[in-house]
Write a protein that binds this DNA or RNA. Structure first.
Lengths: 243, 243
DNA sequence: CGAGTCCTTGAAATGGATCAAACGCTGTGG
DNA sequence: CCACAGCGTTTGATCCATTTCAAGGACTCG
């Protein structure tokens, strides 16, 4: 997240700008949908809206960024670096999610967050959010809702992506990608076989074999622009028959 | 969690009683260590201290218990029931942990919590906790700390107990049990091979084989009273050599 | 003492890992 | 415009860790 100023700035061709949350187009699903106009007077430091291109890091593990990220559009992988140098994806997040909540506890980020598709997100300084939180109990409840959402995601990774035979795990992942991408226009985004492997704890090769098989059987189909479509019914059948 | 009254009651031979948090013996590690004497005037409904025997459920998935559980002593497994009837342990919690935080969002419990060793816990009605939360920002921060602790636990289950070869996963689990049990007097508690299997996503038989091997090689030793001791150094070696 | 519960062990079958090589994009520079 | 480098994907062949199936053993409780 490196260095950002408090003012309107431009970085490369990405537009980084101060933001007026009152007129946010997707506000209904965002963090601040519960706030009233006057509440924003409390914001100490400004909220910045940024676009991250596919492959870019939003923040890195160990960094003390002090900002919470609210996702407006895109797909994000939250990656944990392991002691042996390996990486493990612990969560996938899409529009409406908030990440980097550790910042509210003044902790460095526990993982690295990377854009898997172009991401549009708002960066909210933790002090500002805590201040709003203190004065608005609806936001307070919503914040706990975000913590809970993370927990649900984590539990899904454990129970859905790490339980049962590989074919079922991959099938559940495809459905999960569909769910997360539902908010997107068009279709959900494709992720690399390596990322699939990291989510379902398999090797890249095995993940590739399963996906290749799904594709041959028409359960999944690639679309132009890094998107895909899938056969919900058939994938669920795949899951239940294998266990 | 069935039916409890607001008054001092006895259930079987378990002592269930209203509690005076100001004089809690382990208060330093508990939720309310940040509160002042006067803060307790805000408690709407009373906090109840209960003992659960090994094997008892503290709450069940789907129940709308409306209480947060603060663990004083013991070991708890948080189990998710899967659509196919299987079960999956998603977390292990020990002294100092708080669970059932969903209650703060007025949600039914997402999992079932079971005592793996005798548990001493305080049951805090969500409305009381929310009320305290509203008036005390230190508690507020602490509450977010509990959410975060759950997240950390969940991430450890993903990255430590579901990554790498089985021997390494089981070794990491033993170390985790040691960590959680460190707060206990004596030694950490033994869990069943079935529970080990559910945590490291293997079969019961495979888990048994690995543990039997560890025991034969002296990395782990059973102690009377459902406890065990382990060779930290050797277990870590086991982890790094296998990957 | 017998039933239940959990743990251990063996032998065979197999799903996934590993190792190795080729393929097919996409962007780059001659 | 073509050749090539780089990157992710596919595929094959072999090997092995783990599952599966099956049976026996140990401990606890009534």
């Amino acid at each position: 997240m490196s260095h950002r100023t408090d003012s309107v700035i431009c970085r490369d061709d990405q537009r980084v700008r101060r933001v007026d949350c009152r007129h946010c187009a997707v506000r209904h699903m965002m963090m601040f949908s519960v706030l009233e106009a006057g509440d924003f007077d409390h914001v100490l430091r400004p909220i910045v809206n940024t676009v991250f291109r596919k492959g870019e890091a939003i923040y890195r593990q160990g960094e003390a960024g002090g900002q919470v990220v609210s996702v407006r559009r895109g797909l994000i992988k939250v990656v944990q670096l392991l002691p042996d140098g390996e990486q493990r994806i612990v969560r996938l997040l899409g529009p409406g999610a908030a990440l980097g909540l550790e910042a509210l506890l003044d902790l460095p980020y526990a993982q690295t967050a990377m854009a898997l598709a172009d991401v549009d997100a708002c960066l909210i300084p933790a002090p500002s959010l805590l201040e709003l939180d203190r004065h608005n109990s609806a936001l307070h409840q919503r914040l706990m809702g975000y913590w809970n959402a993370h927990l649900e995601q984590a539990d899904r990774v454990i129970t859905e992506l790490n339980t049962g035979p590989l074919r079922a795990r991959v099938a559940r992942l495809v459905l999960l990608l569909g769910e997360i991408g539902a908010a997107e226009q068009g279709a959900p985004s494709i992720i690399t076989t390596e990322d699939i492997a990291s989510l379902v704890s398999s090797t890249q090769e095995s993940a590739s074999r399963v996906m290749a098989d799904f594709r041959r059987r028409g359960l999944v189909e690639r679309l132009p622009g890094g998107k895909f479509r899938y056969d919900d019914r058939a994938l669920r059948a795949e899951i239940s028959q294998t266990g």
